[in-house]
């Protein structure tokens, strides 16, 4: 018996598939043909089956089905909880870049307008400077500074949202390194499934691609950490222990990512041991 999109053909007998559009779309997405000695269907099979009467009817029925199946497929792929988080975290990183660039530019512009102004000895961070510029300056400079401020406010909101979304989508990973860093790891790997498939050693240097390939090509030392450096337990650890902490953390993250993908719920008994081990290493005790 051969199954085609319009029904099942068994020798001379053809049974058209009856069902609503959604059911038909589901059916063709699950069909698998045997490719050994495969003979393609012809549109006349469909006519013989009573599905359509001519070639244009054949195509309109087939097209309708293909559209329904593709739309179903797209919807399912986007329904993955990590798809939107991925867009959110990439937007966040894009905004960071934009805000830093524009604040520095605004500061430079301000300095040209006020020859007596200098940032030396004031330790004024760019965002504070932008705020005062937006209040005091008129014209385009003031307006641009206002926009940068608004962008920064939107960025803060987005960061909070990324963090809370990450807590839902990847609870175990987020519990270990915080929502924001967890989301960045996921974004760098390309999704939760790709992240869960990575070995711990790869997670450890995720985001340190340049250093890693420089190490592989030349004799430069290997990177100890990539994105996970943003986590406090890594960057707060004394320099000589950082590599150890990063390695242990990455090992636990690899497990956590798998738990997140395959179970999707918080696993306290895993987290307890994992947190304790990372903290011990950070404090310099024997593991």
């Amino acid at each position: 018996m051969q199954s085609y999109w319009f029904g099942d053909v068994d020798g001379e007998v053809c049974t058209p598939f009856t069902g609503d559009a959604a059911a038909r779309a589901r059916r063709i997405r699950s069909l698998r043909a045997t490719m050994d000695g495969f003979i393609p269907l012809t549109w006349k099979d469909a006519v013989a089956c009573g599905v359509c009467s001519d070639r244009s009817g054949y195509f309109s029925a087939l097209r309708e089905l293909c559209f329904a199946a593709a739309e179903q497929d797209i919807r399912e792929q986007y329904a993955g909880k990590d798809t939107e988080l991925l867009q959110m975290v990439r937007t966040l990183d894009g905004m960071d870049e934009m805000i830093n660039l524009l604040s520095e530019r605004v500061a430079e512009w301000h300095q040209v307008r006020h020859p007596a102004f200098s940032r030396k000895y004031h330790r004024t961070p760019a965002h504070v400077l932008v705020k005062s510029i937006s209040q005091k300056q008129r014209g385009a400079l003031g307006r641009v500074a206002q926009q940068v401020e608004q962008l920064a406010a939107a960025r803060t909101d987005l960061a909070r949202e990324v963090s809370s979304r990450a807590n839902l989508v990847m609870p175990n990973t987020s519990a270990l390194i915080g929502g924001l860093v967890a989301a960045r790891l996921m974004s760098n790997a390309g999704g939760l499934l790709p992240l869960s498939r990575l070995p711990a050693s790869a997670i450890q240097v995720l985001g340190a691609r340049t250093a890693l390939f420089a190490h592989l090509r030349t004799k430069s030392p290997s990177p100890k950490h990539g994105i996970i450096f943003q986590h406090r337990r890594v960057h707060n650890a004394p320099k000589e222990r950082r590599g150890k902490v990063a390695r242990a953390l990455a090992g636990k993250l690899a497990i956590a990512a798998r738990l997140d993908y395959f179970r999707g719920v918080l696993v306290p008994e895993f987290l307890e041991g994992a947190q304790a081990r990372i903290d011990r290493l950070g404090a310099g005790d024997k593991p």
């Binding site: 199954s3 085609y4 999109w5 063709i28 069909l31 698998r32 043909a33 045997t34 490719m35 495969f38 393609p40 269907l41 195509f59 087939l62 097209r63 293909c66 559209f67 199946a69 593709a70 497929d73 797209i74």
Partner: peptide, 16 residues
Amino acid sequence: VPIMADASRPEQYAPL
């Protein structure tokens, strides 16, 4: 005719 499938797995879209 748009078909959403993996080109390396023709058995998925052979019925179409």
